[in-house]
Amino acid sequence: MAGILEVRWHGRGGQGTVTAAKVLAEAVMAEGKNVQAFPEYGPERMGAPLRAYNRISETPMTIHCQVTNPAVVAVVDATLLDTVDVTEGATDDAIFVINTPGDPGELKKKMKLKSKQKVFCVDANAISLETIGRIMPNTPMLGAVVKATKVIKLDTLLADIRASFGKKFAEKIIQSNLDAASRAYGEVRS
């Protein structure tokens, strides 16, 4: 869609993928842009593959169909690469942000991506384990997506994570999530 950045998130139930799309939406709105965030609802179970979407635009949006040609694909769980076609419908110059310790060049070959399509890798599992204390890849993935797409400033994202998590969690947990997002922002590789 002209003028609209479309993002597709691939994750598994319980990894915070839907929350990631929501937090990104709120952060984008905080920068005065127009936004949509919507998950694809099916059998919502722990571990079941799921998708969530964002649309981001400078101008108001009336479109309400599904995202079929994303320019950004965020893969929150790399095991999905073997079971789900994450490249389906992606634009010819789409950006893929993948939670993996692997190498972007190798993955690009393995996924048979087009020449202008680009892969960013971030080990969100390791980062979350070291910062948050358990595998919770959604906040580091947000940091990586923000770096790869430049859709908003890192500070805006951090402020929104604080605002979203501040209602529910203790300061220690908020701080560890902020660290996770910042580290991923710095460590994402292409």
């Binding site: 949509q36 919507f38 609802y41």
Partner: peptide, 12 residues
């Protein structure tokens, strides 16, 4: 309003 399409989508 439309279920899910609007009810569960975050918008401005």
């Amino acid at each position: 309003m439309d279920g899910f399409i609007i009810s569960h989508s975050i918008e401005n």
